[in-house]
Amino acid sequence: MRLEKCWFCSSTVYPGHGIQFVRNDAKIFRFCRSKCHKNFKMKRNPRKVKWTKAYRRVHGKDMTQDSTFEFERKRNRPERYDRNLTEEVLKAIPKIAKIQVSRAESHHAIRMKGKKKKVQKEAAKEYEQSIHLLKAPSALLAPEKIKVAVSQQAEENRVMEE
């Protein structure tokens, strides 16, 4: 069973899935789903479409250089069947997958290192700039003290009542 990669988004295409286009110069284009096929027909460049693996690779979003990528390859030379080798490979696959996931996680963590600080800085800036949306500008100023003159008569009346 050969698992191919989608031409557009680089996801794995399992047998019986997706669609394949053979151009008149015998070049093969495989697509995992109609979304990728449509994008190809629109002549979009996968390097410029943000959700593709090609974009993420070019822009340093994903881990690119790693020894775990050396295992999955297109082998154009047939391998002689060896039962022991097959068993070992089957044992190794989940281990390698685990290592790859952990490395990808650490890569993501390193990439997101300055993120929290940046978010807080941006939030502080936004608060400063758009606080007027919540409070009227005059309310932000310190309230002025108002002096009221109290008349002499009113004062006297109160005394009389007592």
């Binding site: 990669k5 031409w7 794995t12 460049n45 090609a54 993420r56 690779r57 990528f69 154009n76 030379r77």
Partner: peptide, 17 residues
């Protein structure tokens, strides 16, 4: 963009001939 680019981006190594 070529199929080889797609394969490399998908976590595959260079083809083994």
């Amino acid at each position: 963009h070529t199929q080889l680019d797609a394969d490399l981006a998908g976590g595959m190594g260079m083809p083994d001939n």
